[in-house]
């Protein structure tokens, strides 16, 4: 009747790690629906393949480590769902699967599995795929073109507006199409309105902190407004960059991956700012079209240091505060004596 390993607080919050991850999955579903709306069943098949690859390699690694794989721990499903959204809908399946295996095995399990990811697995997986097959990952089919589900894609693939921006030219797509996402771009992240709803859903559910996205988007928007990359007016360049670039999607899903994000709120603000600075630098000097994943890998390096320094800063502040308080109370007792 009696159990002894129940520990101190006996009433617990209702949501568990499973519901925490399910929030992110639910936030990703509208993006998959939109990808299906633009590119048909091939988008869903890519998601399926990548999730399957992620889960299988996750289970294999857990067995190798001697741990028992646990069904309700769906962190690899989340990585599996994030990765294909960043690629074009016509990427062959082996690209997605191999990027997924690289992400889960070499980035997640080498550094310790679920919670201790030093680097963001999805970003590293995309970086690996972009390094290996830049042509397949960055050549996009036109939306509403029916892609064959299996076998090579017969659609004509061409570069999207982000390539024009990268080359310095101004994309000639009218604003309505840009806002609705009907242009050649990565599979899931062309429609900025859906992404905004996902951001608010995650913020409301508490799945991500508000500090990192706030500082990240603040700096990115000001940078796009004040220093446009292409010779056009500030707001227009912001609209172009936001809709075509990957940093909006990254700022919501990749930046706030629980493992790599620093824990203190002040450190998160600095982390978001650092990510924004690196993204801008990589955009200006990078050699590739979408360099957000690479910039994020570099910011993950400084995640832990930001936390540790903000901890050190807080200790000094606390000492100063306590010193003033004791001085204040001594003054009061002196008054009373």
């Amino acid at each position: 009747m009696l159990q002894y390993e129940q520990k101190a607080p006996y009433v617990r919050n209702r949501d568990s790690a499973f519901t925490f991850m399910m929030d992110v999955v639910i936030a990703l579903l509208p993006l998959y629906f939109m990808a299906f709306y633009f590119y048909g069943f091939r988008a869903l098949m890519m998601g399926l393949f990548s999730v399957a690859a992620a889960v299988v390699s996750d289970v294999v690694c857990l067995l190798l480590e001697g741990k028992k794989p646990y069904l309700r721990d769906i962190s690899s499903v989340v990585i599996g769902m994030i990765l294909p959204l960043m690629m074009s809908a016509a990427t062959p399946y082996y690209v997605v699967v191999s990027a997924e295996v690289f992400a889960v095995v070499f980035v997640k399990h080498v550094f310790g599995g679920v919670g201790q990811s030093v680097f963001n697995p999805a970003a590293a997986g995309f970086a690996f795929a972009a390094a290996c097959w830049p042509s397949q990952v960055f050549s996009y089919p036109a939306p509403f073109s029916s892609l064959e589900v299996f076998g090579p894609v017969s659609q004509t693939l061409s570069n999207g507006p982000s390539w024009n921006l990268f080359q310095g030219g101004v994309p000639t797509i009218d604003v309505l199409d840009l806002l609705l996402g009907k242009f050649m771009g990565p599979m899931g992240l062309t429609n900025i309105l859906v992404l905004a709803t996902c951001l608010f859903y995650l913020l409301f559910r508490g799945a991500i902190g508000w500090q990192a996205p706030l500082s990240f988007f603040a700096i990115m928007v000001t940078a796009m407004l004040c220093f446009p990359r292409v010779p056009e007016s500030g707001p227009m360049s912001l609209v172009h960059e936001a809709t075509t670039g990957m940093w909006v999607f990254g700022g919501i899903f990749l930046l706030n991956e629980p493992g790599t994000l620093p824990k203190r709120s002040s450190a998160r603000l600095a982390y978001g700012a650092l990510a924004a600075v690196f993204t801008i630098l990589f955009q200006r000097f990078g050699q590739m079209e979408q360099t957000f994943a690479f910039a994020l890998l570099l910011t993950n390096v400084f995640g832990f240091t930001l936390d540790r320094n903000s901890e050190r800063l807080l200790r000094q502040l606390r000492r100063a505060y306590l010193a003033t308080r004791t001085k204040h109370s001594e003054k009061k007792s002196a008054q009373r004596a």
């Binding site: 082996y94 690996f128 290996c132």
Partner: peptide, 11 residues
């Protein structure tokens, strides 16, 4: 069947 050109790079 499968080739990963990036494996030849430094990283």
């Amino acid at each position: 069947p499968l080739k990963f050109p990036a494996v030849a790079y430094v990283f």
